[in-house]
Amino acid sequence: MGTLVVENIVAGYGSGPNILRGLSLTIEAGKTYCIIGPNGAGKSTLVKVIAGLLKPREGRIMYKGEPINGLRADQVLQRGICYVPSDRSLFPDMTVKENLRMGGYILRNSSLVEKRIEQIFIQFPILKEKRSQMAKTLSGGQQQLTSIARAMVLKPELIMLDEPSLGLAPKVVQQIFGTIAILRDQGLTILLVEQNARKGLENADQGVVLDLGMNSFERPAVEVLHDPRIQELYLGKRSRPLQAEAAQ
């Protein structure tokens, strides 16, 4: 099966310090992983390295038994691994449909891309409705949806979502997690990086905790969610009594 194995990855930006310091992780096909950890733990760096956008300094990444570290971003896409960046970065002066077409850029087969876009429109009618609108005129939630749909044009086996709920209103966050649930039902392997740890873990099979770019701690998501140390550190349990006091 399409197992992704990350082995002793060391990575950082430019001539800067190492952000990931020998990180190892195994992602099994068909499961949803939620990666949590404090700022600077290297969550986003990890997905960028896997996506081929950042070359690791050491270590290797194996997908289906073949090394993929050192491949260019388009080559990683060819293997069925897609990445949805955290800033919902669309092409602002292209329409929703043109953005989706760019999602199929590496396919070179425009009729296939059109067919995939039609399928996406059936799945997400809102995108069909907005297809001729410039991406910059969409709401934050619609932009995030377009960004995910753009990755779906390639029919990936593994999709990496970097903070999909960042900066969205609670109701919209709910919708985005609804979309992620649809992807789960389709049997995709999902790697979810979330600031909103509780929401992320509730929607995942496995929870992975990163700290200082190395010791990743991996457990079923439910266990992570109820681990008292994790609750204290990332799920804001300690602040509850304070909120209760304030309410009185």
Binding site: L53, A73, V84, M102, G103, Y105, I106
Partner: peptide, 18 residues
């Protein structure tokens, strides 16, 4: 299209494989 995409958002262009 790849040129326009790069003009509008260089990072995003890389993400889709340009």
């Amino acid at each position: 299209n790849a040129i326009r995409a790069t003009m509008q958002n260089r990072n995003s262009a890389q993400v889709v494989g340009v």
